[in-house]
Structure formats: structure tokens, C-alpha cells
């Protein structure tokens, strides 16, 4: 006798899976990886590989020996964390620091809460901020990017180091040097400026973002409200005093704001559910970023802004419910 399956409806599924979403994010990160290699040489690739490998290893170790559950490293989420962490680091960071960052990101940022889906904070940012506070010198020594034509001819990247545009600006404002030489906007757009490996090239981030939008991994609400708020707020400040505040275009093209708005703030685990909640979250990120940049002690504020807003997500979810039918 043949037995039939019985289950509740619906009896079909869209085919979406956690794995697919995570691998889509990984695919969206490929342009960033390429620009990182292009501007910072193969050293950048090495940092990425170490970061990803240690994230995978730590997740596997924690699941196997601490939680004693089935391993989930194949779902691709640890690779996303590893890549995003690496993209938030300078390319010349000593590898042992990268490994510590991965341990904090995976161990404290993600697994201590119970794994994927349960973490309130973006794991990569937890790792990054931990390193920023613990190793301030190494974390703020940036290699100058290579010219596009001489990456292969000149392998020695760490020959010169320099500050990021944001840090240089802050320094200039502090010293009262009004005429600060801002980076060429085209360089900033392509990524030919100092900074973390993944944050420099706006164009690569936009390509990745468009891919994720098309695959419906993210929605436009957070990036648009985040960048829009930062743009408007910094424009207001710049109009008040152009010599004291950075111009709005440079503001959004530097200091990881694009990377944060497209890849970090949109992390589905740590962002709100409803459309309006997402907009509020994005506005909060934008405001906090500009406030920390201009009046805080750190030159950049994206990581802190996103982590602070992550903490507000449960509240936002309560306050900004989706619009109900006939309401």
C-alpha cells in the first residue's frame, strides 16, 4: 500500500533559501574584491583569504565543540562576514590582527547570540570596531593606493603610507589649515584614495548594490535614506561654514559610507522589517555618521552609527509596523 504525504498548505515554495541569499551577497562583493586587488595589490587578496578562512574555521570550531550542533559553514554567511570584515581593514594590517578580528566577529558578534539570525549587531562591524579600539595605530595606517597601471610592475605596496581623506581633513581642521587639498572626486569614485580595502571604490560598491537589488537581497530603503540623510545633513553644514566642514559629495564618497550604506546597514539580520522602519533606520545611520565624524574623536563614524542603530532595531520594529490592509 502506498502512503501519501499530508501537510498543511502551501504545497509549493518559491525556492528562496538562506544559502542563496548569502551567496548572492558574496557575488555582489566580487567587484569590491577586484578593486581591492587592483588598488592595493595581492596583499589585499591575502588579507581577504585569511579573514574568510579564519571566520569559517572559528564558526566550525564553535559549532562543533562549544555548541555541539550541526555545522552551518556551507550556508555562506561566514564567508560574507569574513569578506566584509576584510573590506573594513587596511590592506597592510598584520595577519594575526586579522585573525583576532575574525574571532571577535564570529565568536562574539555572531555565535555568542546563537548563530545566524540571532545576532543583534552586524558581526563584521563588531570585529572591525574591536580592532579599531584595540589596535588604533595599525588600524589607521593606510597604504597609499597604487596607480592602476603599476600594480604589477611595482609589487611593494607598503612603501608609502598615508592618511585617509577624512583623517587628513580632520587634522587640517584641527590645525586651522583652511585650504585642505581634497581628493579628486573621480579618484574617490573609482577608488584611487587611501582607506580600507573595500570602502575606496564607490563604483564597485554601486555595482554590487545593483546586483543585490536585482536579486531582491536588499531593498532601496536603507541605502537611499542613509546616503540621502548624510548628503543633506553635510550639505547644510557645508553651506554654513565651507572651510570647517567637508563638502557633501566628498563626504559620501569617503570613509566607508557607501560600503556601510549598501553592504553593512542592509544586513537583513540586523535591520528593521518594515519599509518605514528601514527608512527610519537609514536616517538614523546617516545622522549619527555625520555627527560622529564632525564632533566625535574618530574621523569616521559609519561603523559606530550602524552599530548604534542596530541596537535600536527591536524598538523600530515595534514602533514602525508594516501598513495593514484597510488601515
Amino acid at each position: 500500500m502506498r502512503l501519501l504525504n499530508v501537510s498543511g498548505s502551501p504545497h509549493v515554495h518559491s525556492g528562496e533559501s538562506v544559502k542563496r541569499i548569502m551567496w548572492d551577497v558574496n557575488i555582489a562583493l566580487i567587484p569590491l574584491l577586484l578593486t581591492a586587488i587592483l588598488f592595493f595589490g595581492f596583499e589585499a587578496l591575502f588579507v581577504c583569504l585569511v579573514s574568510v578562512a579564519s571566520c569559517l574555521l572559528f564558526q566550525w570550531l564553535i559549532e562543533k565543540f562549544l555548541l555541539k550542533t550541526k555545522t552551518t559553514i556551507t550556508d555562506g554567511s561566514a564567508i560574507v562576514t569574513g569578506l566584509l570584515l576584510a573590506f573594513n581593514l587596511p590592506s597592510n594590517l598584520p595577519l594575526w590582527i586579522v585573525i583576532i578580528g575574525a574571532l571577535v566577529a564570529i565568536g562574539i558578534g555572531k555565535m555568542s547570540f546563537g548563530g545566524l539570525g540571532k545576532n543583534p549587531f552586524n558581526p563584521a562591524l563588531v570585529g572591525r570596531v574591536f580592532l579599531l579600539i584595540s589596535f588604533p595605530v595599525q588600524m589607521t595606517t593606510w597604504p597609499r593606493p597604487l596607480g592602476i597601471c603599476n600594480i604589477f610592475s611595482n609589487g611593494a605596496v607598503d612603501a608609502t603610507t598615508g592618511a585617509t581623506p577624512l583623517a587628513a581633513f580632520k587634522e587640517a581642521v584641527k590645525n586651522g589649515t583652511a585650504n585642505f587639498d581634497m581628493p579628486n572626486l573621480m579618484d574617490a569614485f573609482l577608488g584611487h584614495i587611501g582607506g580600507s580595502m573595500g570602502e575606496v571604490s564607490a563604483i564597485a560598491i554601486i555595482i554590487g548594490g545593483i546586483y543585490m537589488l536585482c536579486r531582491r537581497v536588499i531593498s532601496w530603503h536603507i541605502p537611499v535614506s542613509f546616503i540621502g540623510t548624510a548628503l543633506v545633513f553635510s550639505a547644510i553644514l557645508w553651506c554654513i561654514n565651507p572651510s570647517h566642514y567637508m563638502d557633501p559629495i566628498t563626504t559620501i564618497l569617503t570613509g566607508g559610507l557607501m560600503l556601510g550604506a549598501v553592504f553593512m546597514a542592509t544586513d537583513m539580520v540586523t535591520s528593521p522589517m518594515s519599509k518605514w522602519g528601514k527608512v527610519v533606520f537609514g536616517i538614523g545611520c546617516g545622522l549619527l555618521t555625520i555627527i560622529i565624524r564632525n564632533w566625535g574623536s574618530y574621523p569616521e563614524g559609519v561603523s559606530f552609527a550602524i552599530l548604534l542603530m542596530n541596537a535600536c532595531v527591536p524598538l523600530i520594529n515595534k514602533g514602525f509596523k508594516p501598513k495593514r490592509f484597510a488601515k
Partner: peptide, 18 residues
């Protein structure tokens, strides 16, 4: 699997529920 809080259910719900 564990919920990854992607919000796809919220987006799909024709009654605007969570």
C-alpha cells in the same frame, strides 16, 4: 532553519501582517 529576519514574509503578506 533559524529565521534570518529578512522580512520577506512581511513583504509578501497581502494583509500587512508580521
Amino acid at each position: 532553519q533559524d529565521c534570518i529576519r529578512c522580512g520577506k514574509c512581511v513583504k509578501a503578506c497581502p494583509m500587512g501582517l508580521e
